[in-house]
Amino acid sequence: MSSVNLMAREVAAKIVFYGPGLSGKTTSLRKIYETVRPAHRGEMMSIATEGDRTLFFDFLPVKVERVGDCSVRLALYTVPGQVFYNATRKLVLQGADGVVFVADSQPEAMDANRESLANLEENLFEHGIRLDRFPLVMQWNKRDLDGVLPVEVLRQELNPRGVPELETSAANGRGVLDTLKAITRLVIKDLRAKRIVPPPRPAAGAQPAGLEAQLTQHLQHRQQPGTPPQAAAQAAGPVPRVAPVVAVVPPPRVEPAPIPTPQPGPKLLGAASALAPGDMFDHARAAEAAFMTGDYSTCVTACSDAIRRALAFAGEGSLGQQAFLLRVDGADLLRLQGLSTQQHLRVDDAAFSLYVMMQVFVRLNAVGLPSAE
């Protein structure tokens, strides 16, 4: 999920708090939210059951200190701890740049810890990621309780790789921020290794090297307003000698045969219908056919219907919640909803609706939805 805004010099990364139910994932995020300065945090969203367990996700964008001359923005998530919400775990884990595994230090929770860690490794592998090559921090939580397991036992059972580990008590916030700092350092190190984080800008007065230096010098020697052409030529240096050009008589021009323009027909498969899952194939074909014939209102309506059906595969909830889980741009959905209420639509409106529909299809394919029966 990591992205870089080169203009703002900002790096965005996604960190997921993973672990068994009631291990302290949501409590950890709440303590981070309470500790971080209001100017450096966004709104925390949580959907919980009656037992105060995270059902879908917690989301907390936190802006942390600068790395080089780039600021870092973290999007913090938690996953539901219950095993039967594994599909939601996979969706939240999609695009993660690092994971904090929150382990319950109580002896009776060891089996749940092992099961959750194995589930993390399995879900990452389905996303094409190996856990042993992924930024991971172990958070030994509930260290303030009596009768907890020694850290050596937890390390032997859950941390054979020897990744960074910290003892925490999420209930009072002890060690939680240190855990966030540890996973942030690992994520930034990994992004630098992947050359996602841009290198620092050269210091003021430093001379750029290589091709950049040549371009800079060329721009400095370009003719300024009011500068005589002779002076500009002298500043640019001597003009290299060029061999004389020998005129060549071109052969007679032969007009190429006209290429027939393909006509839309039932055998042509458009880009939207090629991406569409089976249940949305007819809607995608109808939208493409309407676009080709200039019926832009029908095109927008067909796209909107297909998108609603596609987002339903993310599970029950509002359209916004479904779009958030699939990482679909909410602003695009709002704009598309506004187009659905208009009577006179243009070609760019219909093209935009096709674009949004294809983006939703791509997100479904990326997370393996709808799953094969």
Score class of each variant (00 low, 15 high):
V4I: 15
N5V: 07
Y18F: 15
Y18C: 03
P20I: 07
L22A: 15
T27P: 07
R30G: 04
I32P: 11
Y33K: 12
T35Y: 01
T35D: 11
A39G: 01
G51C: 01
G51H: 13
P61R: 08
P61C: 08
V62G: 08
K63F: 07
G68S: 08
D69K: 04
D69H: 10
D69C: 10
S71N: 11
A75E: 12
A75S: 12
L76T: 03
V79A: 06
P80Y: 09
P80Q: 06
N86K: 10
N86T: 15
R89C: 05
R89E: 07
L91Y: 09
A96D: 00
V100K: 08
F101L: 05
S105Y: 03
P107E: 12
A112Q: 14
R114I: 14
S116C: 04
S116D: 05
L117F: 14
I129A: 03
V137H: 04
Q139E: 13
K142S: 08
L149W: 03
N159E: 02
V163F: 11
E165F: 11
S169L: 01
S169G: 08
A170Y: 06
R174Y: 08
D178W: 03
V187C: 07
K189M: 10
D190P: 06
R192S: 06
R192G: 07
R192I: 13
A193R: 10
R195D: 14
R195Y: 05
V197Y: 10
A204Q: 14
A206G: 03
L211Q: 11
E212C: 02
H218T: 12
H218C: 07
H221W: 13
Q224R: 15
P225F: 05
P228S: 15
Q230A: 15
Q230L: 14
A233K: 12
V239L: 12
P240H: 09
V245R: 11
V245C: 03
V245G: 02
V245I: 13
V246D: 07
A247H: 10
A247W: 14
V248G: 04
P251I: 07
R253E: 10
E255A: 12
A257E: 14
P258W: 06
I259W: 05
T261A: 14
Q263V: 15
G265M: 01
G265Q: 03
G270S: 01
G270A: 08
L275M: 14
G278S: 12
M280Q: 14
D282W: 00
A290P: 03
M292F: 05
D295K: 00
S297H: 03
S304I: 00
F313S: 02
G315R: 02
G315D: 09
S318P: 00
L319M: 15
L319C: 04
Q321S: 11
L325H: 09
L326K: 02
D329S: 09
D329W: 04
A331H: 05
R335K: 11
L336N: 06
S340E: 07
Q342D: 02
Q343V: 11
H344K: 06
H344W: 00
F352P: 00
S353P: 02
Y355H: 07
M357A: 14
M358S: 10
M358I: 00
V360E: 06
L369C: 02
L369Q: 00
E373V: 13
